[in-house]
Amino acid sequence: MELILEIKEVSKIYGSVVALNNLTLNVPQGQWLAIMGPSGSGKTTLMNIVGCLDSPTEGQVTLDGLNLGTLSLAGLTAIRRESIGLIFQEFHLISYLTALENVMVAQYYHSLVDEGEALEALARVGLRDRAKHLPKQLSGGEQQRVCVARALINHPKLILADEPTGNLDETNERLVMDILHGLHDQGSSIVVVTHAQEVAAHAERVIYLEHGRLVRDSQNDSLSEEDARKEPGQADVRVV
């Protein structure tokens, strides 16, 4: 099966802190992967590396066939623009732009703005009638849905969601997860970082990180548990 993401023996070290420790992970095209783990386990570091916002100290990351380590800063920016849709826990909408304009910002940096397409994206997340509202006029759930619309507007190959429901109530959480299901059904690859078991439960596959090491993989539980008993640096889980 074709891989959207290949992570090979990746480590990330900040001074004396090892955020990721010799991590190996393969994600096939179209897979919905959830990354779980306690605070400081390296989830966000992994997300940043996959999202081309950070680079590993060691190892190799291949996204959609491109070795990220060979790319310049501009090349990484281009990958973010072309291939990745980011969904943030804190939404990060631009406060002085309407919902529609927030979606169009992603188009603007990607290629050409298209108001009709942006409205369609908002319609997909049920917010067509809120298109002209500023973020402060929207509820948290609505803001997150605008964030989702912005992430999907350029048809990214990979959607990265960092605690997408962390700031939402149950109703809005369900709405957002339904949207992600819709995207997944259409073939999108999704990687979700979450603390919440109920959010992870939506994914096809769940991995657990601890101290920067992959300690469990739902696709290969027995192997990963065995790996988990190994010394740090030896816990390699390969999914092909």
Binding site: R80, R81, H92, Y109
Partner: peptide, 16 residues
Amino acid sequence: RREIGLKKALGAENWR
């Protein structure tokens, strides 16, 4: 800063 960071995360180059 966050807005600038967001724009970069969305793929904006420094020059833009």
